[in-house]
Amino acid sequence: MLFREKEMAALEALLFVAKDPLTIETLAELVDLAPHEAAELVQELEQKYKASEHGLALIRINDGFKLGTKPELAPYIEALYKQPAQGLSAAALEVLSIIAYKQPTTRGEIDFLRGVQSDRAVATLVEKGLVKEVGRKDGPGRPVLFGTTEQFLVHFGLSSLSELPSLDTEAFAESAGTAEEEE
Score class of each variant (00 low, 15 high):
Met8Glu: 09
Ala9Val: 11
Ala13Arg: 06
Leu15Thr: 04
Lys19Glu: 01
Asp20Ile: 02
Thr23Tyr: 11
Ile24Ser: 02
Thr26Ala: 15
Thr26Glu: 13
Asp32His: 13
His36Asp: 08
Ala38Gly: 03
Glu40Phe: 11
Val42Phe: 12
Gln43Ala: 01
Leu45Phe: 08
Gln47Gly: 14
Tyr49Met: 06
Ala51Asn: 04
Ala51Gln: 14
Ala51Arg: 09
Ser52Pro: 11
Leu58Asp: 09
Ile59Thr: 01
Ile61Glu: 05
Asp63Pro: 05
Gly68Ser: 09
Thr69His: 12
Glu72Ala: 14
Tyr76Ser: 06
Leu80Pro: 09
Ser89His: 10
Ala92Gln: 07
Ala92Tyr: 13
Ala92Ser: 15
Val95Tyr: 06
Val95Ser: 03
Val95Thr: 14
Gln103Gly: 09
Gln103Asp: 01
Pro104Thr: 03
Pro104Trp: 02
Thr105Tyr: 04
Thr106Asn: 13
Arg107Ser: 06
Arg107Thr: 12
Arg107Met: 15
Gly108His: 01
Gly108Gln: 03
Phe112Lys: 12
Phe112Pro: 13
Arg114His: 08
Gln117Tyr: 14
Ser118Leu: 14
Arg120Glu: 14
Arg120Trp: 03
Val122Met: 01
Leu130Pro: 00
Val131Glu: 02
Arg136Met: 08
Gly139Cys: 14
Gly139Phe: 08
Gly139Val: 10
Pro140Thr: 13
Pro140Arg: 15
Arg142Met: 04
Leu145Met: 03
Phe146Val: 03
Thr149His: 04
Glu150Met: 12
Glu150Pro: 02
Leu153Ile: 05
Phe156Ile: 09
Phe156Asp: 07
Gly157Ile: 06
Gly157Trp: 13
Leu158Trp: 12
Ser159Leu: 11
Ser160Pro: 11
Leu161Pro: 00
Glu163Trp: 15
Leu164Pro: 00
Leu167Met: 05
Asp168Tyr: 00
Thr169Gln: 04
Glu170Met: 06
Ala173Met: 07
Glu174Ser: 10
Glu174Ala: 07
Ser175Val: 00
Gly177Trp: 15
Gly177Glu: 07
Glu181Arg: 07
Glu182Met: 09
Glu183Thr: 09
